[in-house]
Design a protein around this nucleic acid. Structure first.
Ligand SMILES: [Mn+2]
Ligand SMILES: [Mn+2]
Ligand SMILES: [Zn+2]
Ligand SMILES: [Zn+2]
Lengths: 148, 148
DNA sequence: TCTTAAATAAGAATAATTATCAATTAGGAA
DNA sequence: TTCCTAATTGATAATTATTCTTATTTAAGA
């Protein structure tokens, strides 16, 4: 583990946080999830192999990761925050019938929005990012959503 | 009041909900607020004139309004839902330093996004709406944000 | 190896929201 | 107009997500 986690350790360390076993496990787990998990979901997926890591630590850890640029945070209309290992600018598809959040990457769209706002006068606001939110319902909950 | 609220009453009635004093007061209040209020905020602003309306009723009522197309609901990273009387498609500017949510209407942008997705194949998703989310910080919290 | 500030586990506390249920009421039917 | 009934409400309890507290442990630099 010391060896295979070296990449994770570097990321944590470079972000300015102390490297702890808990943080290694949590970051490694979230990086492998592409479903925008909740804290509870993260906790469930680590606890069998790491029964001593407490739920409170998962809360504190993901929040530290967000504040230090290792994760991003996504809010929904369903009362729970969700976490996202993808840091580059991208949109999200919210399926209200399945509670899924699906990534939507599109360079052409990003460029279009960027150049749109290039021509705008924005006063009294320091923009951090601009994202697109696509709200809808999955038609067949079993199948994937595809936009291309 | 029976007279001046007739427009509000009609809206409630046409949406399929029973017309009650509580609903008239709450809808009338939210329609006049442009700050995307929380339930608590709505409750505070009605309770002096309507001390008998309970907080639970405000929760149930705004949720009924959302389900019946009279209000829309906006989520934030701050643990409270916020309600929006504007129903036509528009984006939001989230100022994380002031917790403000500011409407961003732009027909040109709407058209641009619409025509962008016209040329896309979207499979297995019934799109309800597509909105833009602009995240940033107000520079001078006292002054307004302007994009033009 | 020592030192110390930061992190953790466990559990209590808080805050937003939802559920329960008896009493009231809106609005259609008679 | 009166009656009927399902929907709504107020009061309050319960739930849920998240944060706080504190004693203990630990990472990492001196
Ligand atoms: Mn929330
Ligand atoms: Mn909550
Ligand atoms: Zn994402
Ligand atoms: Zn709005």
């Amino acid at each position: 583990m010391s060896l295979s986690y070296s990449h994770i350790k570097d990321k944590i360390s470079e972000s300015g946080l102390k490297v702890t076993h808990q943080r290694i496990v949590i970051l490694n787990t979230v990086l492998q999830m592409d479903n925008h998990p909740t804290v509870e979901h993260i906790y469930e997926s680590i606890k069998d192999a790491n029964p001593s890591i407490s739920l409170g630590t998962v809360y504190k850890t993901v929040e530290a990761f967000v504040n230090n640029g290792l994760l991003s945070k996504v809010s929904t209309n369903e009362g729970q925050m969700r976490y996202d290992p993808k840091l580059d600018n991208h949109g999200h598809i919210y399926c209200s019938n399945t509670s899924e959040i699906i990534d939507y990457f599109d360079d052409e769209l990003n460029d279009m929005i960027l150049s749109f706002f290039k021509n705008k006068r924005v006063s009294n606001l320091k923009i951090k990012n601009i994202t697109l939110q696509i709200n809808g319902d999955k038609i067949d909950p079993e199948k994937d959503v595809l936009i291309k």
